[in-house]
Amino acid sequence: MKSKVLQDLSLKGVEILSEYEARSVLQEYGISCPKEVMVEYKEGRSGVDYLSDLKKMAEWPGYPTFLKVISREIRSAVNAGTIRRVTSDDEAVVAIDMIIGNAKRYKEGVSINGILASQDVSTRETREIFIGAIADEQFDHLISFGFGGIYVEVYRDVEFRVIPIKESDVYSMIKYLKGKEILGAFRDMRPINMELLVDTVLKVSKMVEENPEIVELDINPLIVGPDRAIAVDTLIRIRAK
């Protein structure tokens, strides 16, 4: 079964999916994502206006939450300063004005789609995982899986396998990760739910196998814990039809 969302986007000539679109693709494959709501951006509105609209929506995740500017022109929200974690209405109002300002400073005349509120799903017990996929001339598509977060390219503690993979392949990947002990009971954290994690990696493999137009994919981080495996930040690039 091919992803309906991806097919539509591919026909429209979209190459890099917005986070919102990427999230819809993940959800088609049963991969959990944080609760999110978005309001459209309109020039001249203030933080107070956006927040009141966001809070009116049924899916409003509550606090703590991440507020983020959605724009196809911003690749890294962290680098652009267009994402902020807030814990109250007061913080939220200030943060929205600030991230919009940063977006405009990031690129003159930047086109902004909307303001997104995304539930903060990390807890004291969660760990950050990385799942990726890439089209490869030799092996068609590769999946990668390892430890994520902002240091992913520093530690490079990831394993690659050729898609499709089986459950035993995921366990083999885990076996070879240097930091694998972090997944078990660690300090005062309970072990993560391994089945949820393995299941998520397999779902990504299936998603890429069924949609070979995916050229690149990063889920970073996938927040995992004793009760969750949630894809927080997803990048998908597809080959336009």
């Binding site: 092996f139 590769l142 690659f160 990048l235 690039r237």
Partner: peptide, 22 residues
């Protein structure tokens, strides 16, 4: 043999690491 990449996956996928996994 890969297109220019913008992802972490792309920059992590050096040939040796890929072969190791394979």
């Amino acid at each position: 043999g890969r297109e220019a990449v913008m992802s972490h996956t792309g920059s992590l996928a050096v040939e040796d690491k890929v072969f190791e996994g394979v």
